[in-house]
């Protein structure tokens, strides 16, 4: 796993503050969260949520840092980080498209939307395009079943989607450098 995890981060600072907690504001914010939870081992999931929010994904160094701070074995931190789907040990693309594959969206044709984006980006669900532009993910219901099929484009939930409309949107991301 180390090869995938060690891939250069999109969100880590160019200056390489990695491993130098004092030089990076995000470490300070992470520290504040841990402090608020009194460095309790049972706050591990809360802390990982914050870490992922700040850093975009959970690099091994970051997991070690958390393990050290909360005084829990690195194996447990790694075990928790890999158990929950929410946590990502790999960097995400500049843009993300999350296609809901819950039951309501499935019966309304979500698999065709997935297939269309997979074909467009030349990737499978869960992967990022080689140029790092777009990550494609699937979800198990985001609670917008009333407007299925639902697709989340860079964090914005959109409903009643079609393969064509989502393809057009993602083409825009792939096409220009914004």
């Amino acid at each position: 796993m180390s090869s995938t995890v060690a891939a250069p981060s999109k969100t880590a600072p160019a200056g390489g503050a990695k491993g130098q907690p004092s030089g990076d504001n995000r470490y300070k914010m992470l520290e504040a969260t841990m402090k608020r939870h009194q460095y309790a081992a049972d706050s591990l999931i809360e802390v990982l949520h914050t870490a992922q929010e700040l850093f975009g994904f959970l690099e091994v160094d970051l997991l070690l840092h958390v393990a050290h701070s909360l005084r829990v074995p690195p194996s447990r931190v790694y075990g928790v980080a890999t158990f929950y789907h929410f946590f990502s040990l790999k960097p995400k693309g500049d843009h993300t498209v999350v296609i809901c594959m819950g039951t309501a969206c499935y019966v309304k044709g979500a698999s065709q939307v997935v297939a269309a984006i997979e074909a467009l980006g030349g990737i499978k669900a869960g992967e990022t395009t080689p140029d790092g532009r777009v990550s494609l993910m699937t979800a198990r219901c985001i609670g917008a079943c009333g407007i299925a099929p639902a697709v989340v484009l860079d964090g914005n939930i959109t409903g009643k989607q079609t393969a064509g409309a989502v393809v057009d949107h993602v083409k825009g991301w792939l096409g220009n450098g914004s």
Binding site: M101, G102, T103, A104, C141, G143, A144, C145, G146
Partner: peptide, 12 residues
């Protein structure tokens, strides 16, 4: 935790 995909009562 409302895990059943296609259910959104609790969310609402």
């Amino acid at each position: 935790d409302e895990g059943d995909p296609g259910a959104f009562m609790d969310r609402s």
